[in-house]
Design a protein around this nucleic acid. Sequence first.
DNA 1: TGTAACGTTTGACACGTGTCAACAGTCACA
DNA 2: TGTGACTGTTGACACGTGTCAAACGTTACA
Lengths: 347, 347
Amino acid sequence: MNSSGRVSIKDVARLANVSQGTVSHVLNHPDRVSPVRREAVEKAIRELGFVRHEAARHLRAGYSSTVGLLLLDAWNPGFTEVARGVEDTTMDQGWTVVISNSARDIEREKTYLRLFYEQRVAGLIVVPHDQSADDLHQIRSGGAPVVVVDRPETGDHGMSVAVDDVAGGELAARHLISLGHRHVAFIGDEAAAAPVHARLIGVRKAVAEAGVDIRLDVIPAELTAEAGRETGEMLAAMPAGKRPTAVAAAIDLLAIGVLQAFLQHGIGVPDDISLCGYDDIPFTRQLSVPLTTVHRSHYDMGTTAAEMLTSALSGQVPDLRHVVFQPELVVRQSTGPVQPRSRRRTR
Amino acid sequence: MNSSGRVSIKDVARLANVSQGTVSHVLNHPDRVSPVRREAVEKAIRELGFVRHEAARHLRAGYSSTVGLLLLDAWNPGFTEVARGVEDTTMDQGWTVVISNSARDIEREKTYLRLFYEQRVAGLIVVPHDQSADDLHQIRSGGAPVVVVDRPETGDHGMSVAVDDVAGGELAARHLISLGHRHVAFIGDEAAAAPVHARLIGVRKAVAEAGVDIRLDVIPAELTAEAGRETGEMLAAMPAGKRPTAVAAAIDLLAIGVLQAFLQHGIGVPDDISLCGYDDIPFTRQLSVPLTTVHRSHYDMGTTAAEMLTSALSGQVPDLRHVVFQPELVVRQSTGPVQPRSRRRTR
DNA sequence: TGTAACGTTTGACACGTGTCAACAGTCACA
DNA sequence: TGTGACTGTTGACACGTGTCAAACGTTACA
């Protein structure tokens, strides 16, 4: 044991009556060492409780087996699914994943990006803030491949995995329109995040293409269940004739809040108002009224991003540099045909 | 720029016409360097896009500013709260947190513990698997302080933060008993995790101390919403007279599943059956029937664990080596007095 | 017996940084 | 002018590992 109280490769070599180089070979190229020495070294390792020093290994080898994952919001169930996909895929291929969370704070994001760069991570998967292209570019110029998740990108230098949220918005709106709804509200702040903006564009597109006269109200709201509850209460307070007959929420969390407010105020879903979410997080199935929503394959986004990254790391050029998933409408019980004016709840 | 294509401190020194030592001083002890040189160095750093190499720094300095957080189950909302608490506290004090997730897999836990050890993390916060005392001890012997979360520990060498789940089980059971319930079911596999076992002990204790004749059914179930739904359906299929009048679930996720099944089968909560959860995860408030549950301060567990760790890292001995939080009963709307045999739903 | 070929082991070196003793330069004071 | 005190700067070294050329030992063959 050396002066710092830690066991190094030298101590192992001394105990096993062998040179440092041999110990290193046992660790990295066991086939180059004779069985006798190998066993002696392994015994010494066990006796001393030696564990190799990753920083030294990294410094000498010049490469790292660590991959960084920077999440925009680790507490959003959708993104934890992304993380699970990334973890499952990279673990299988021998990479270590380090997860960090920017919590939608651009300063925090910058800090973590710098940290990742200082650690010389081999590669990086980022669910980025809206305004952080610069920092991502800096990492890229350092030589580490970067996969951007949940922001559609194009071009030759970079990789991305995203969902076609314009199409998703269209799906939701078309579904509601086809059920006969002619007064629809979209809930969510389009300035809050690029994907929300895209969804609204899709909704507007479907409305414009419907060929019938449709009124679309856009109600800005934070992306939380609490904001959903407040918005739901506002809607509940409106006279029934003035109220939209259908609501499309920018994310499921919002829809959950809206649903809760509606039920509390005796507004039936879908009998009085239809409600459509977005994301298809696991909890949508556990709600008192299972939610119609637009499914995004978060887990698959994670695995795909991880596969792109690992293939880039092994020197291959991935077949596709930019993958866009198509969302799918999942019809459950929170949406239904528009009711005639003098309607009654069925149960 | 050196041969590997990366910029090192030497390159900065050369460009700024200064020695390596001076550059290092600019980075670590700016006050020791004259303003003229400092500016020259800073300019060179900007021009070259120099970012220091954490592995080399770590190797030379002998210490790391990284703290590991190993979660048992990152997808359980309770544990993500713990992570949030840890992150907020350690970030403030300049530590970097690396999060990993053992996913209740003991092999994965071992792998990550080894990885943390190889990285020579300064300290470690672990929400451990039931059978992993050995590995934790190995880390401790390496000199890094370890805080164990959610498993009550005692003794002088080690730190822990936990919740008195026996008391929590008692709280839940006493509440139900005080409402007049005499036939109670506990749902959850006591072998699944130590905290669940503790809760059941608490329930049994309350039943024994009640002084009245109480029937307690223990129904093993996995710790998922899906398992809760299945158990709820089984209970719903029983004739009303044979059914327990109250259910205590081992965790909220289970209770959510039970609730969903009850409502689907027309069983009123709390009118037909009272339902009590455990954990107080955020979603309990968003349910169609807000859940009575036992609150555990997950976020505070995280901050406390982080504070203990950071004070240990700065050489102080924390005032308390083992902290046990007291749970609190949160009465919402899913529990109510037992109804006479010929009862009717009120709404 | 001598030599070549081969497989195993060795020892020195480099990776990029922080530290520390030593050194140079400046200034005030005697 | 010489001395001491002080500030700023330097250069060598160490941290623990992986690699690589060189050395070593063994065996096979002439």
